[in-house]
Write a protein that binds this DNA or RNA. Structure first.
Lengths: 211, 211, 211, 211
DNA sequence: GATGAATGAGATTTCATTCAT
DNA sequence: GATGAATGAAATCTCATTCAT
């Protein structure tokens, strides 16, 4: 029982489930452990969620809501406006750092979604429909803002670039939180600096090649 | 029952477990499904593996063996020697393609390990002890072969570069096999080309900066 | 299902387990039979006892409690006080009869403990630590009360005498309940009379020898 | 595998089963452990014994044979003849010691029979039919030889005396082998001396009373 | 709303027995 | 005769879900 007394029962259950799911995986989690963690009776879970699977769906829906809330372009636009005279790399780095903070804040949720998508078609569908598209939008917006001209590259290569960019950040973020990095630990700001430098210069180089 | 009659029972169980683990996750898999998939009696599983968890350990050990077999520097050296007069990017691409083929061949195993290390400390320990070190060695060897001078960069940045490189490839490989890429599908050779171009030029650029 | 509806589930399981253990032995008993006998679902057993072996430990603990409750010297002292002017044999017989009644009342428990200490080191340890000492105390108290002078005999012979006394009663009690006595059946009171006569006169005789 | 290579397979199995039964009880023993202990394949057990239960029956039958072989009156008569001029107690003690040696030699068998009689009606029947009667005969013979006059006592009391005598020795023997005696350990000869003294003098006293 | 005891279906595991070699 | 892999029925145990209080 590690829950704030003032929270509503459903929230206590949700938070506890998120914690247990992220530590044990969905199938490895038990409703009894979730109840214990939430500090509520096991039976109470089923007042708010029809089944255990339903809690996972709840997590997914919450994730979608959170993404809608925090992944919109507002904070990005703000960053861009505040730094419009600085180099593009600088802006990219600030944005990546912002993403990392959000990633970290919602890490258990990110981890659960990331893992369970593999095994639940319905969850995967929601993810693909709602999240991937949204993520694409934001990166697209980002690229546009920093002035990468659409005519310079064909659509496919652009999307591949987006994938590469996402891989690099996702990889850096997960490795850090996974405790898989045992050596060469550097502050996240420095790692982001380096990732963006590699990506930005690499991308710039290959796109300039065709000039 | 989807198993070759000529296989030994333990192999049938291993293959079936791998398939089911990769489709359902370790906790989501049942020994009864594994047995059905293997075409053996459920009891037979426990002749070869003391517990269900033991099968997972078996997968990990097999992975370690496979990595020792395929991840050694021989095939890499061969590639390098056969292409020594070609540009470095070309060599990197050939090697990455080779890695992808191996990744694809052992995809279920890769997937199972990749996900389950999150939840099993003992599995994670083996992974860290045996695999990460080995992977580091090979990438290190690779970097040395292509003549990146050790004095140019500090050790930490080098290791971060390795992490970036791994993230890029791992990300590209998993996204492809995960069926998360719905659009902008391009042949793996092209994707690798692009990833390596970005990485190689990006890295080259930032390391030349200090010159 | 042979259980009183008003009993708490744990007691129903305990009683049923005791019955089945005493009829089949611990290893020969199945949790499904215990559940059937208790009139509860098999799963309910594991709410109250982590494992089947735990039920046996529960029986042992209950035995220890019961012994603490009934094997104290109070009832013995009461018997002695109420009959202080009667011959010692008379007192011994009354006490032995009292022991038999308790033995009979808790026969299944006695039987289970008696047999299972052979096979379970942990159970045996509890038995040795808690019961044997207590039994020694009570017999010692008894001997002292009836005025057997400590100086007359050495400590070792005294303890052997205690063992002999216990063997005689235990043997008589178990043979009776085991249905191994097919002939020469006599009421327990008469058998106790004879056992005590043999023991008392025999002991008296050998201890007088040294006078 | 603790078996003499020269033994026939059936004997190896028998000996191993005896050992495992006596350590774990019949139900707690597994055929796989018996096979391992015997140094034979598990399947071989079922060439010689139709079922696991059949091994237990084999143990019982062997016990019966052994008792017929060793519990006959010949060795007793020999003892009596060789010591006919010594006191009766002396003869009784020699005989009890002889019984103890045999008890000890066949301890595992004794233990198995003693325990399993409780749980197997068929085994119990054989025991009652073959062993108890035989034991009665031998004690009867013994009593007659030492000149206890049949007319002195009624038949029932005589049989009860036999039961008492058996209890005393069985109790002493089992306590010793069970490792339940932690203190007041004395050599078996001394314990037998004391047991016989108590019994003999006790019995003598109560039977002389009626004179 | 909240509880937690009870359930029972199903998961893991054991093991006596069979049988092809 | 001997082997030991394979079996499958049954044992132990787990856990999501229900329901009376």
């Amino acid at each position: 029982m590690a829950q704030d007394k003032s929270l509503h029962t459903k929230d206590k259950i949700f938070n506890a489930a998120l914690k247990v799911f992220s530590e044990k995986g969905f199938s490895g989690a038990t409703t009894s452990e979730i109840a214990r963690e939430a500090g509520v009776a096991e039976g109470s879970i089923f007042r708010y969620y029809k089944t255990k699977k339903d809690i996972l769906r709840g997590v997914m829906l919450e994730y979608v809501n959170r993404v809608e809330e925090f992944a919109d372009t507002e904070s990005m636009k703000k960053i861009i406006k505040e730094h419009k005279n600085e180099p593009i790399e600088k802006i990219l780095k600030l944005m990546a750092l912002n993403r990392y903070k959000i990633f970290e804040k919602y890490y258990p949720m990110n981890k659960v979604i990331f893992y369970e998508i593999q095994f639940h078609e319905d969850i995967k569908k929601i993810y693909c429909d709602k999240i991937i598209e949204k993520e694409s939008d934001i990166v697209k917006f980002l690229f546009e803002e920093i002035g990468i001209d659409k005519e310079v590259y064909e659509d496919t290569r652009y999307q591949v670039a987006v994938r590469i960019f996402k891989s690099m950040l996702t990889g850096a973020f997960f490795q850090r939180k996974n405790e898989l990095i045992k050596e060469a630990y550097i502050p996240i700001e420095e790692e982001i600096d380096m990732v963006i430098d590699v990506f930005f210069n690499g991308i710039n180089h290959i796109w300039r090649v065709g000039e």
